[in-house]
Nucleic acid binder design. Structure first.
Lengths: 203, 203
DNA sequence: TCGAAAATTGCAGTGAGTGCAAGATTGTCA
DNA sequence: TGACAATCTTGCACTCACTGCAATTTTCGA
């Protein structure tokens, strides 16, 4: 953790090289025309090594870092905060996630761009949610104990997915204008509007 | 269309045999321990023929029939009906979808059961939404022209997905109690509640 | 500088999925 | 009814993602 060491540095460098190679090749030839062999060759490692770094080809193309949920944000959410309103706090949580996704800005932009033209990869967010399902469920349960609510965990999971996807596609569509957070706010506003306008008497 | 013919009958029979074989084997051995060869053998056809019926192993396990959206329901939605309220009409649309999914009740129940223990298949609904994305978008656009609303198509797509998944998992969790429709209503109610309680001043 | 730990790599193998062409089945129409 | 056409099935050969294993190389710590 403290002393980086050559090992760590090399690992990160290789990883980045693989992501860059994967993204460049896919951007040029399309997802199905690119093989793991090509990516590995371009990054200067063997195909077998590729799989020491990524579970699947798709993971590499998307540059999956798979940071979990930031502990601080998780704790606050579980404790019933920061605002005490479920949807609002869900938005905050997703905001933190998006930040960690977009951490490596260049690569994230590339990933989103590729996602647009390769519908198969659109499931990325679902895969993410899937992988952290257990973690999220625990979070929901913890919060439920402190500040009860009636919604099922499953619905909240899907809400997280909805916010993730709506915000990122909106950001992507805007040509990466503004910060991701404003697109997230917009997604929440849209959701509220859809629901609210269904409740108005004069529909 | 009118005269069924041996061809049609055989096709349906083979298809059903493949789904039954796939579901039985997966229920017993788990998804990864079952190969396409096994399924084909059990259904009495060659492995090559399997792929004349299904694009992927997963499709067979889930018994994907891939009925599109019922034209009548689609027309009504596009025309701005039946209620004129976006969320409510979205619910109706999803209800029709669920009905066509659960058409073959036995197989549907099996599919949902397997889905629960094989998280990879949980993406099924997303795949469905993905495949009908274009169709749904057209529907949204048509309706938008008649009865404008501000939400993005992407958000509506995710809303469809949310309703599909929340309703079916709730149904599954209840041990297939009651009809799917009541679980769908419940999902919508939960969603409304989450949003509404976020708007209340005394949160 | 030496030995332990960790990483890379080749190799052999499984299994999904595809294109193709030959052979079997089924529908149709005279 | 019989033959021709359309449709299905199947075997074969192939590509590629992904895995386990064991040998080899690289890096680290003392």
């Amino acid at each position: 953790m403290v002393v980086t060491g050559l090992r760590e540095a090399n690992k990160r460098a290789r990883r980045d090289a693989l992501v860059d190679a994967a993204q460049a090749l896919v951007a040029e030839h399309g997802l199905d025309a690119v093989t793991v062999e090509m990516i590995s060759a371009k990054a200067g490692v063997s195909a077998r090594t590729f799989f020491n770094y990524f579970e699947t080809k798709d993971d590499a193309v998307l540059g999956l870092v798979d940071t979990g949920i930031a502990p601080a944000a998780a704790r606050e959410f579980a404790a019933g905060g920061p605002s005490g309103r479920l949807l609002t706090d869900l938005q905050v949580l997703v905001g933190v996630l998006l930040e960690s996704f977009a951490g490596q800005h260049e690569r994230a932009v590339q990933a989103f761009r590729i996602m647009e033209s390769e519908p198969r990869l659109l499931q990325r967010h679902m895969v993410w949610v899937d992988r952290h399902k257990a973690e999220l469920r625990e979070l929901f349960e913890a919060r439920r104990a402190v500040r009860p609510f009636s919604a099922d965990n499953e619905l909240l999971l899907m809400l997280v997915l909805l916010l993730l996807r709506t915000a990122t596609t909106s950001w992507e569509r805007s040509g990466h204008q503004g910060n991701l957070d404003s697109h997230l706010s917009d997604a929440v506003a849209q959701l509220i509007h859809v629901v609210a306008s269904d409740l108005e008497p004069g529909a």
